[in-house]
Amino acid sequence: MVKYFSNNTDIQNAWEHVVSAFWRRYPNPFSTHVLTEDVVYREVTADHKLLSRRLLTKTNRLPRWAEKVFPTHLARSVYIVEDSIVDPLTRSLTTFTWNLNHTTLMAVEERCVFKESALQPATTSVKREAWISSGVYGFSRPIQEFGLARFKSNQTKSMKGLEHALLNGHGEAAQRPLRDPVKEPLGKAKEAAKTLASVPPTSKPQQYI
């Protein structure tokens, strides 16, 4: 069983401004759970699309009831792959994200499309979808419910962070470095980045998309 989430919203800014803010939205005061971000692959294709792959490190705090059941190291860090496609012809930005570790506990896959609105001038429409699953026997349902609630909360923070980047432009707030994670996760993240860099991003979505 998989939990599915979908919503649509509009950003009252031109598409090119939203795309610019997307690349510089970290750090921001609404996404303190994002520890690091690294570009591991980037390419401009023959048909002028920009393909990018980034590796993000985020905190992964478990709910209190789960901390009593699962090992404490699970609450440390989670590594997220973000593939993105910028298409200037269709004026769209499509992102695919999924977690690399803790996938048995909970796997979260997301697709998000930022597209120039055909109905409202200087407006960008955003469609966000997510698929949340867990392979923990006997706990999959409460874990998925928790994952869905957390995703909704983080999605709200993500939009606020994007709005923060839009308002602040290239100001000082957007230039502060991200916090460093603990040494062990950082080493693992670097190893993952080397592997990911050898595989180009794809426009094909993940298994639930």
Rank of each mutant, 00 (worst) to 15 (best):
T59F: 12
Q206M: 12
K49Y: 05
T156Q: 11
A122V: 04
L93A: 09
I132F: 09
W131M: 03
A173E: 09
V2C: 09
S31N: 13
N7I: 00
D83E: 03
G161H: 05
E163K: 11
V44N: 01
T156L: 10
A193K: 04
S134H: 08
T195N: 12
V18D: 07
H73T: 12
T104E: 07
I209S: 14
F139S: 12
G169Y: 05
S140T: 08
A192P: 02
M1T: 07
R42T: 00
A192F: 15
T72D: 10
D87N: 09
A21Q: 03
A174R: 12
H73I: 15
Y79W: 12
R76A: 11
Y79V: 03
P29W: 08
K160I: 04
L55P: 06
N168R: 06
E43S: 03
I209L: 13
H102N: 10
V113Y: 13
P177M: 07
E82L: 00
L186R: 13
W23H: 06
F30V: 01
N7G: 01
M159H: 09
N99E: 08
V34H: 04
Y137T: 10
L51Y: 02
L89G: 03
E184V: 15
R128N: 13
S92P: 06
A173W: 04
L35E: 05
R141D: 15
V108K: 09
A66V: 14
R76M: 11
L166T: 04
E110G: 09
Q206F: 12
T124W: 08
D83K: 00
Y4R: 14
K127D: 10
A197D: 09
Q155N: 13
T97D: 04
W65Y: 09
H48G: 01
K183T: 05
E129C: 10
H73E: 13
R176I: 04
F30M: 02
V113A: 14
T72F: 15
F146K: 05
E37A: 11
P177K: 06
R25Y: 05
N154S: 06
K194Q: 13
E191F: 10
L74F: 13
A46E: 15
S117N: 13
F22N: 01
T124E: 11
H33I: 02
L167W: 03
P71K: 06
L62C: 08
E16I: 04
L167A: 12
H102G: 06
V34A: 04
K190C: 15
T94F: 03
A192R: 14
K3F: 14
Q12L: 12
P121A: 08
F139Y: 15
N168M: 09
E116T: 05
L162T: 02
P27S: 00
D180M: 15
L186E: 15
H48T: 02
D87V: 02
I80R: 09
